[in-house]
Write a protein that binds this DNA or RNA. Structure first.
Lengths: 132, 132
DNA sequence: CCAATATTAGTTATCATTATCATTATATCA
DNA sequence: TGATATAATGATAATGATAACTAATATTGG
């Protein structure tokens, strides 16, 4: 039998923080934010819980194009856009989820269970703020 | 003016190794292989040259879903499939390259310059060899 | 062949993430 | 409600991939 889960203050704070925002922060952004209410929370605890919550289906771990991992409070798979300048990640409202996985399944030797799409470019903010 | 490029023995060996194989190895696989002909080549040299060659458009750097970066001797952008069991990466012959980027461009605030798709699942080899 | 300089080998540093472990908090049940 | 079993934490050390540094070497145009 699996170990009983205990919902600690810090686990709930991390989940809550992620659910309450619509961007897709990295572990240390979450860390900085949660620290405002639980000042002595450990960075390890943040990583541990983000991994746990993703495993548990409460949140989404967004495969990073480079650098660090990003997390999404919305656990339903969807596509993302990453700004190559500031590194921010946002949602893209296109849904080809079952279609593309199916298409690939017919072409690949093996079993295709899903896919991710990461769009890239320059976000609106970085595009307008083109100093230099 | 830009510095003149010198094509060293090790740079050519790395490029050649990547061009001659149809899988998509990581830096240390390349390192192990090139070491057979240039035994004292440095791992740093492999990383440096893979970055250089990708920048130069000779090869493709495949954004890793997790763990380490993979490289592709084919510099023309295309889609990939990653086995969650053995970690191998292979090609997927679907091409939605301009279409999807365009679609996203209409939905995102900013400029979308491209995208990557990573399919995931279990490759044919790992699927048949399903011991335990 | 020589000189100018790009590139290398070897090493150390960095960064994100995991593991370790003694201590603390949580949930269960008497 | 309060004792108890154990999951979770905080602090820190360890890991793994990649980048940076530097003196020595190899490459290329003249």
């Amino acid at each position: 039998m699996q170990p009983k889960v205990k919902y600690s203050r810090q686990r709930l704070a991390i989940l809550n923080e992620l659910k309450s925002r619509c961007d897709h922060p990295t572990a240390d952004v979450i860390y900085a934010e949660v620290r405002k209410t639980i000042p002595n929370i450990s960075l390890g605890t943040v990583y541990r819980n983000l991994a746990f919550l993703a495993q548990n289906g409460d949140i989404l771990k967004i495969p990073a194009t480079m650098g660090s991992e990003h997390f999404d409070g919305n656990p339903v798979p969807h596509y993302h856009f990453k700004c190559n300048v500031c590194g921010s990640v946002s949602d893209v409202a296109i849904d080809l989820m079952p279609t593309l996985t199916e298409m690939a399944g017919k072409l690949v030797d093996g079993v295709v269970t899903g896919h991710t799409i990461m769009f890239e470019g320059k976000c609106g903010l970085c595009d307008s703020t083109c100093r230099k």
